[in-house]
């Protein structure tokens, strides 16, 4: 199967355009099977107060993650202020030994919408400390421009609220982002429900997709991971091939020259 072009994410060159989460799977084995089937080279994970002892599962999760040999993208999930997010990012850097951080600063607990003001504040601090920030943001153009001005090389606007599977609620806004920030690496993060949602984003020219729930909550997560992998590759191939322009009126595909006289209509 033909593969789409490689791409650059900060200092890394990647083949797979799918970032996949490690949460919500029914078992560690199901998670491992799904991640392997996805072909993803970047996985998201998090950190919490937790004590690895002999009497609990210890650091089994970490052992499994290490065996995948993927790039790690720790998140700051659950943070509602810039201060919390910065603190969590610093801990994540120490814990996972990476400068990459998926920066989440939430402003609303009902739809888990990012707080754009706190996001900018946290981004500014973290970039000054040498972090490679992957901000989880809304599709607001001005916010995204300001994040780019602060030094983000990657932006991750939502397609829809986290875990809803609603797909791309506002394709127009996502298309405008792509057009106005042509050099920026853009991933749709959150809201993807079906492989066709991912294809739609990739055909708009997005560079990649970050998802978790759509695979983890599928009846067959590994099979769904394969479906997403192929869909994302197909969407990117289509974008690179150049999608035909949409027209308002029909245009025959079969030649109309030299038609017999009874088929000549004007």
């Amino acid at each position: 199967m033909q593969q789409a072009s490689t791409w650059q994410v900060y200092d890394q060159t990647l083949q797979s355009r799918l970032f996949i989460g490690t949460a919500l799977y029914s078992s560690p084995q199901v998670m491992m099977d799904a991640i392997k089937a996805s072909g993803s080279q970047v996985i998201t994970l998090s950190l919490r107060r937790q004590t690895p002892t002999k009497s609990n599962s210890g650091d089994q999760f970490w052992q499994l993650i290490q065996s995948l040999d993927c790039h790690l993208l720790p998140n700051t999930a659950g943070c509602y202020s810039a201060k919390e997010a910065v603190k969590t990012a610093r801990l994540a850097r120490e814990l996972f030994q990476t400068d990459w951080v998926k920066l989440e600063v939430l402003g609303d607990s009902y739809n888990l919408q990012p707080d754009p003001f706190a996001l900018l504040e946290a981004t500014k601090t973290l970039i000054a400390e040498g972090f490679k920030v992957f901000p989880y943001c809304t599709d607001d153009l001005v916010l995204c421009q300001k994040l780019a001005d602060l030094g983000c090389e990657v932006l991750m606007p939502w397609g829809a609220p986290i875990g809803t599977g609603k797909g791309l609620i506002n394709p127009y806004a996502l298309q405008i982002l792509r057009e106005r920030l042509p050099e920026m690496t853009l991933l749709v993060d959150a809201g993807i429900g079906k492989p066709s949602d991912a294809v739609q984003a990739m055909e708009l020219g997005y560079d990649g997709i970050l998802l978790n729930t759509a695979v983890a909550e599928a009846l067959e997560p590994a099979q769904m991971a394969t479906a997403f992998s192929q869909a994302i590759n197909a969407g990117r191939l289509a974008y690179e091939a150049g999608v035909m322009p949409e027209r308002q009126h029909a245009k025959p595909s079969t030649p109309t020259l030299e038609q017999p006289i009874w088929q000549q209509h004007g």
Binding site: G21, A23, L45, S46, Q50, F61, I65, N75, A77
Partner: peptide, 10 residues
């Protein structure tokens, strides 16, 4: 005193 460990995340 807190001990922070890796957990699953999206």
């Amino acid at each position: 005193l807190e001990i922070m460990s890796p957990i699953t995340g999206g």
